[in-house]
């Protein structure tokens, strides 16, 4: 039963990284002052999906609280500065996207753009660092609390943060290639392709740092899965680049989405059955089973969620279906 909930948690977080990922990626691209896919067109492209994307994060934390209460407390408090950064990023993007279009002049609008960019950077860095921090384990006190927050300050965590940032940027550009009017697509595909080498470099650096880190090597229970992760991400990036060159935006988007979907489940699987691995003494680690809520709670939530899940996914799918296709000058502009 714990495994099923753990898988669901992974699914929701992965879906958030994919869907929220292109929101932040598109936000990052607002840093360019001109060209296709800046300003209002970019926001119109994400508009209908924005609220539905972000709510995957809300649901992830809901599942975390309901099904893994102990993990919720230790994870969020134990990674305090990282979570704070990510959270501030999410808030800035949410507010900025909505406020940007309501500002008066060009200058104010540029200011809001900058806020969205900063928010996107913070969110991507934060979630990337959180995954990296999990992979390298945490110092646990005798009573099971994470000791301090100094443990996150390592080159590896910085690298995972930057990697997610790069992936999100590629993903956002690819999304725009898919969504904006056909005339804009080639320029955007070029932009996305240009970002791929940066992402590849980041993945490579992360892999090397991870292999060199004693903490990462000690914490990972299934090295094969941990090594698989960068390989699949690199493969996905290469597929995306090739597809972008051929003008196959759909394939490219599927590839970048895969690159963002995999980190969460593979990190979870590589650490299984532990989740907060104690540095020094792995036996003291917090296991998934140990972090889970007790049986009656899981059963209750299960009975509620099981019948509901098809509806949740169905309405999300309805949203994608209704607003599929490229936007044109006639698309409703609300943000």
């Amino acid at each position: 039963m714990e495994l099923a909930w753990y898988a669901l948690l992974g699914l929701f977080f992965a879906a958030y990284l994919v869907l929220g990922g292109y929101d932040y990626g598109v936000g990052l691209l607002l840093a360019r002052r001109a060209g296709a896919g800046t300003g209002r067109a970019a926001l119109t492209a994400v508009g209908p999906f924005f609220l539905g994307n972000e709510v995957w994060l809300v649901a992830t934390v809901g599942i975390l609280f309901g099904a893994f209460p102990t993990l919720e407390g230790e994870l969020l408090a134990g990674f305090y500065p990282v979570v704070l950064g990510a959270l501030a990023g999410v808030v800035l993007v949410t507010a900025g996207v909505q406020l940007r279009g309501r500002a008066g002049g060009e200058a104010t609008r540029a200011g809001w753009d900058r806020i969205v960019v900063v928010g996107g950077v913070l969110a991507a860095l934060g979630w990337g660092a959180l995954l990296g921090g999990l992979l390298q384990g945490v110092p646990l006190t005798a009573d099971g609390h994470v000791a301090g927050v100094g443990h996150v300050v390592t080159p590896f965590v910085a690298a995972t943060g930057l990697t997610l940032l790069a992936l999100v940027a590629v993903h956002g550009a690819t999304f725009l290639t898919l969504r904006l009017p056909p005339a804009d697509a080639p320029a955007l595909a070029r932009l996305a392709r240009g970002l791929v080498p940066a992402a590849l470099t980041a993945v490579a650096a992360t892999t090397v740092l991870g292999l060199l880190s004693d903490r990462v090597r000690a914490a990972v229970a299934r090295p094969a899965l941990a090594v698989l992760l960068p390989l699949v991400v690199v493969a996905a990036l290469l597929v995306a680049r090739a597809a972008l060159r051929r003008g196959r935006a759909g394939v490219a988007f599927a590839a970048t989405a895969t690159a963002l979907a995999l980190p969460a489940p593979l990190v979870g699987a590589a650490l299984w059955p532990r989740i907060l691995v104690a540095t020094g003494d792995p036996a003291a680690s917090l296991t998934v089973a140990g972090a889970a809520a007790s049986r009656p709670t899981l059963a209750l939530l299960g009975w509620l969620v099981l019948p509901l899940l098809p509806a949740l996914l169905g309405f999300q799918a309805m949203c994608w279906w209704v607003f599929r296709g490229r936007i044109d000058g006639r698309a409703p502009v609300y943000w």
């Binding site: 809901g62 599942i63 309901g66 209460p69 809520a293």
Partner: peptide, 13 residues
Amino acid sequence: GNVFGAPLAIETL
């Protein structure tokens, strides 16, 4: 969390 978490999880989902 075993008790208090349940309504919050239900709320989000």
